[in-house]
Structures are given as structure tokens and as C-alpha cells.
């Protein structure tokens, strides 16, 4: 087991190295470097000043040398300084990581907590009204463009009904839990709603299979109640593929959460990344890339282990 972990971590690090190298190279090709952005609306920098700043930022070295420098710095814990904000990248990310984790974590949790039971119930009574309704609900979640949902939700709940605030993570001066919750409701619902779709469908099909299997009928024959049958056997086997599905969707989740963050002005990593790409803020893009890659890879490793624990049929190679 330890050996397995060790191998996985090593391979994860290799993956991170490749991802960051590829993205760094791509970034160097992006037209309109940060320097041009700085030259701004006046182009008022003289040639000498331009060259001086270029040298300061290290932009006159070849790509591989710059990447190597970045890598060396990262290993020392120095993520560089954002071109745009002038603040150490590590600091910016540390500040904005929490809100994203909160948003995504809560969203995913609700998606699972609600999606699982709905899917199981649908599989339990296939063809029923409940089944059809939940299928439709799932379809809606999977197909509706996220930003339309965001904007219409804000319109109805914030604007028309004045139930929730329309932006940000908290009202200034109010650090209470209640205030946080009310700001969370809308964005979390949207994230949960989109993710629930897949989960419901997956749960339903996984459970359908399982509920047919003979050993469950044996269990029923033995006298176990319906609930016990579902919970003990159905859930146990269905949870594993569901978890796989949920975990494997984390990169996509981060991406779509970015859109939600942007619209709600939620101070998270996704919105930060979108701005960073717009501003060609290379140090920041690299920092966020690394963090996202780490999170995803850790999640995958965690999932692998959890999957192994949950489903005794899997063994480690």
C-alpha cells in the first residue's frame, strides 16, 4: 500500500511537471505580453525604459531558461510576484483558495447528498413518475448553459424577490456564519444543480444493475427490509462508481465554478485565473495552474484509495 502511494505520488509529480511545462511554453507564445499591457493606453514608455523593464522581469531569456528559473523558485516556495497586482503569487492564491474550496466543496457535497438518494429512488422504482421527473431534472442540470442559470437566478432571487445578495462572499463588517450562508446559497445551488445531473443518471444506472442482481434477491428472501437491502448492498456498490464519477469531474468542476465565481464576484481561484489569463499575468497563471493540478491529482489519489477500500473486488497492481 505504501509502495503504491509512493508510486502514485511520484507519477503525480511527473504529471505536474509536464502540465506546468506545457502551459509555460504555451504562455510564452501568447501574443501581447504583460509588458505591452503595461505600456498601456499611452505607449508612453521609451525604448530604453521598455528594455529595462523587460530585463527586470527576465523576459529577455529563452523559454526553457525562464521555466527552469520558475521551477527552481517554486521548489523553494517562491511562486514569484504577480505582474498585475504586484503581490506575491503565493499570498494571492492563499487568500483566494479558501473561498473556492468552500464553494466547490459545498456544491459537490450537496450534489452528492441530494443526487445519490434521488438516483437510488429512481432506480428503485423505474418507470414511475418520480423516475421520470428526476430524469428530467437531471437532464436540465446537464444541458442548461451555466451562465444563463446564474443570471436568471440572480434576476429572480436577488433582484425580484430580494431574498439573497447578488454578489460577493460577505457583507463588509459582518463576519457571521449566517451572512456567509446567505451569500453561499445561490452559487452553491447552481453548482450543485449542474453536477447533480450526471450523478443522478450514473447512480440510477449503477443501482438498476445492482438491484437486479441475484444476491440482493437472496438478501430479500432472507427477510431483510427493503431499506436495509438498498442501504447495505445497493448503496455500497453504487457509491464507488459514483465517487469515481464525482472525483473525475473535479477539473471540469473547477472550470465551470470559475464562470459562477466570475458572475457572482465570488473571490475564488477560478475567477482569479480568468483574470490572470486576460492580463497575461504569467506568474499568477503558473501559480494557479500548479495549485489546480495538485488538487486534482491529490483528489485522484485519494479516490483510488477510497475506491479500493470500498469495493473489495479491486486489488492493487
Amino acid at each position: 500500500m505504501v509502495r503504491y502511494l509512493y508510486e502514485r505520488i511520484l507519477s503525480a509529480m511527473l504529471t505536474m511537471f509536464i502540465v506546468t511545462a506545457i502551459i509555460y511554453t504555451l504562455l510564452s507564445l501568447v501574443q501581447g505580453s504583460a509588458l505591452d499591457v503595461m505600456g498601456g493606453s499611452g505607449g508612453e514608455m521609451s525604448h530604453a525604459d521598455y528594455e529595462a523593464i523587460r530585463h527586470n522581469l527576465g523576459l529577455d531569456l529563452p523559454v526553457w531558461a525562464r521555466y527552469g528559473q520558475w521551477l527552481r523558485n517554486v521548489l523553494r516556495g517562491d511562486f514569484g510576484v504577480s505582474y498585475r497586482y504586484g503581490v506575491p503569487v503565493g499570498e494571492v492564491i492563499a487568500q483566494r483558495f479558501g473561498p473556492s474550496a468552500l464553494l466547490i466543496g459545498t456544491g459537490l457535497a450537496f450534489a452528492v447528498l441530494l443526487g445519490l438518494p434521488i438516483g437510488i429512488m429512481a432506480a428503485h422504482r423505474p418507470g414511475s413518475l418520480w423516475d421520470r421527473l428526476s430524469s428530467f431534472f437531471a437532464l436540465a442540470g446537464m444541458t442548461a448553459p451555466r451562465f444563463i442559470i446564474c443570471i436568471t437566478f440572480i434576476y429572480f432571487f436577488s433582484f425580484k424577490l430580494r431574498l439573497t445578495p447578488s454578489m460577493g462572499m460577505h457583507t463588509v463588517g459582518n463576519a457571521s456564519f449566517g451572512d456567509l450562508v446567505i451569500h453561499l446559497i445561490l452559487p452553491v445551488s447552481i453548482i450543485a444543480f449542474s453536477k447533480m445531473g450526471y450523478l443522478i443518471k450514473q447512480t440510477r444506472s449503477a443501482c438498476l444493475e445492482v438491484f437486479q442482481e441475484d444476491y440482493l434477491n437472496t438478501a430479500r428472501a432472507k427477510g431483510l427490509s427493503e431499506t436495509e437491502v438498498i442501504l447495505k448492498h445497493g448503496l455500497r456498490t453504487a457509491v464507488a462508481p459514483i465517487l469515481t464519477q464525482a472525483m473525475a469531474e473535479i477539473p471540469e468542476l473547477v472550470g465551470s465554478a470559475a464562470i459562477v465565481e466570475k458572475i457572482f464576484g465570488w473571490p475564488g481561484i477560478g475567477a482569479l485565473m480568468i483574470e490572470a489569463i486576460r492580463n497575461r499575468d504569467v506568474p499568477l497563471i503558473m501559480g494557479v495552474t500548479l495549485v489546480i493540478a495538485v488538487v486534482v491529482l491529490l483528489a485522484n489519489i485519494f479516490l483510488d484509495i477510497a475506491y479500493g477500500l470500498l469495493d473489495p473486488r479491486v486489488s492493487y497492481r
Partner: peptide
């Protein structure tokens, strides 16, 4: 992000 005091 999850804790804190009430509104001032």
C-alpha cells in the same frame, strides 16, 4: 471563512 463574529 466559516467563522466569525456577528455584524457590527
Amino acid at each position: 471563512t466559516a467563522c466569525g463574529r456577528g455584524p457590527d
